[in-house]
Design a protein around this nucleic acid. Structure first.
Length: 326
DNA sequence: TGAACTACCCGCCAAC
DNA sequence: GTGTTGGCGGGTAGTT
């Protein structure tokens, strides 16, 4: 159960990345029945701490807070600035006692220095991925994803992908409905899959063409309950299959079928949470067709079976609130 | 869970 | 010469 979240802050912390953590975990949304965390910004180096924007960060909390945190988050860290040994030890202790640690952007260098990424997949901002791989050869660096979930140790890519990782954690803890509600309050997209590419060639979709991809994407969202293949989507877009695949990937950062599976799994998750449909019916309503296919993809994307997922969320009140301090 | 079949993805290359 | 499109085929992933 995620209750206490700590943002560990050192010198020259990046303000946007820290802001992401404060916004997701530190904002009280209990008026909508959303979870409230015991969120604390903790100085892990001697004050005064000066952000990369030049202002001073004054917090009453220190490194001792990490010992009781359920989640420790490292915002972007100056990769040329060695993290203190006490921080590295606290991170290792946290993982040993079962807590989770996460990084945003170059915060991955701190987790790597602590040895927590050895033998694990990890990501960071694409500009720093080569340096991370060079310094820490035991880390399996993937520069082409938004975030990597290795269970207790999670890493995200540059800046805004930190939001995706935070929402991913909330989705795991409280379900898709809560994560979507938090995303709605933040006015950000609720579901970007971790495997989505960091760099998208053409982020702005043109709307004035007859073969507009956006029209097809809208059609898919409205027809997820129907079974159809990529060739069908290509025909709807008035393109050859090869061109559709190429333009879809360039526009969205993921291949058509992979994106489709992600959308179907997300819909299945909502139906499992919000309806009493059995797994077979959910499979039909999400276009998977059979329960076996749904189980296959649900397990791959969510790490659990549809039934187990429903059991873990059907009785938990989505609006459960937790005491908050700091 | 494993096997067989099918669909998908993507590098390559030629045509426009 | 450059960029886009679309076919081919092998490897991979999805489906039954």
């Amino acid at each position: 159960m995620l209750r206490k979240v700590v943002a560990a802050v050192g010198q020259h912390v990046a303000t946007f990345e820290l802001g992401v953590l404060c916004e997701v975990f530190g904002t009280d949304r209990s008026d909508e029945g959303l979870p409230v965390y015991d969120f604390r910004v903790c100085a892990v180096e001697p004050p005064p701490l000066v952000s990369d924007a030049g202002f001073t960060i004054n917090t009453p909390y220190g490194i001792d807070e990490l010992a009781t945190a359920d989640l420790i988050a490292i915002a972007a860290w100056n990769a040329d600035h060695d993290p203190p040994a006490e921080l590295l030890a606290a991170l290792r202790d946290a993982v040993d006692r079962g807590a989770r640690v996460m990084s945003v952007c170059t915060g991955a260098f701190v987790l790597a220095e602590a040895g927590l990424l050895d033998g694990r997949r990890a990501t960071t901002h694409w500009r720093h991925a080569a340096e991370l791989a060079r310094r820490y050869p035991d880390v399996d660096v993937d520069a082409n994803v938004l975030y990597v979930d290795e269970g207790q140790v999670l890493t995200s890519a540059g800046t805004a992908s930190g939001i995706d990782l935070c929402l991913h954690i909330i989705r795991q803890e409280h379900g898709a409905a809560v994560a979507n509600a938090v995303a709605r309050r933040m006015v950000v997209p609720p579901q970007r899959d971790g495997g989505q590419a960091q760099f998208i060639e053409a982020p702005v979709v043109e709307h004035d063409r007859g073969d507009d991809l956006a029209v097809v994407l809208d059609w898919v969202q409205a027809n997820l309950n129907k079974p159809f293949g990529v060739d069908h989507l290509a025909r709807r877009a008035n393109m050859s299959l090869r061109t559709f695949n190429r333009r879809f990937t360039a526009t969205t950062g993921t291949a058509p079928h992979r994106w489709l599976i992600t959308q179907r799994v997300a819909l299945a998750q909502r139906l499992l949470e919000e309806t009493e449909l059995d797994v077979e019916q959910v499979a039909e309503q999400t276009g998977f067709g059979t329960a076996a296919t749904l189980r296959h993809h649900f397990a791959r994307h969510r790490g659990t079976s549809p039934q187990a997922y429903r059991r873990s969320f059907c009785c938990a009140a989505p609006g459960e609130t937790l005491s908050r301090a700091g």
